[in-house]
Design a protein around this nucleic acid. Structure first.
Lengths: 123, 123
DNA sequence: TAAATATATCAATAATTCATGATATATGGA
DNA sequence: TCCATATATCATGAATTATTGATATATTTA
């Protein structure tokens, strides 16, 4: 993530439908949601949803996987982590070593093995 | 922060100059930077910088304070925290109580009293 | 009060983005 | 092979956004 790619990612989140989609996918975690489910949940027409999902995909904040006729979308926690780390770089008075693990915890990643990310799942 | 205000904040970060400004202010912490310093640091004309600062101000991600002829700008860590908390709401499999303190730590707030926010400053 | 400095506002044009209707592609089932 | 389902792509017009030159406002100093 750098100054050329980060604005694209923030732009992807700057539109209400796309932000709603993203938040639904964050909540859905590694279960994800189908394109049609997202459209139905948010009351968005098919082609509009498709176009907005394409913009989110290109931003690196979500990913997808086809399964038969359906395509399932997921939040991409690696991409989210990269974006937030870039945004908050050198926060806390220029001590990135301090903030980095906090960002990692914030964006706890259901795509990784559970044992790599216990903070996300332990009580 | 809600679905009507968050897109405005992400839109504010979706433009390279404004994202550079924001990151400089995050690094500057409670020292902040003058409008003119920001323009000089980034090579941006005066009125363009003023317009972009106004957009960031309206987003709630930065704040300012006039001091004589100059106006000093600061990252608004309360606003940042609100935005990221909204973005990542119910992350980690729907356990907001788990993620909330992580977001709080991520956006450690130099505006608050040090003793309220030790994680940001202790080694 | 007049000049200088720092920043904001205005008006206009150029560029970008958005939702939509129509259509195309991909897959599965009869 | 034909049809139905799920999703993507295309072209277009409307709306929004960005930058710029010019000018205005606020503050300090002479």
């Amino acid at each position: 993530m750098d100054i050329t790619t980060a604005p694209t990612a923030f732009s992807a989140l700057s539109q209400p439908t796309r932000l709603n989609v993203f938040r639904l996918l964050v909540k859905a975690g590694n279960i994800g949601m189908l394109s049609g489910e997202l459209g139905q949940a948010l009351g968005i027409r098919q082609n509009t949803m498709s176009a907005n999902l394409a913009i989110l995909l290109q931003s690196g904040l979500i990913r997808n996987a086809r399964n038969g006729r359906t395509i399932r979308y997921f939040a991409d926690f690696n991409g989210i982590h990269g974006l937030l780390a870039f945004l908050m770089e050198d926060c806390c008075g220029g001590n990135p070593a301090l903030c980095e693990p906090l960002i990692t915890q914030l964006t706890c990643n259901p795509n990784t093995h559970k044992e790599d990310n216990d903070a996300c799942y332990s009580s």
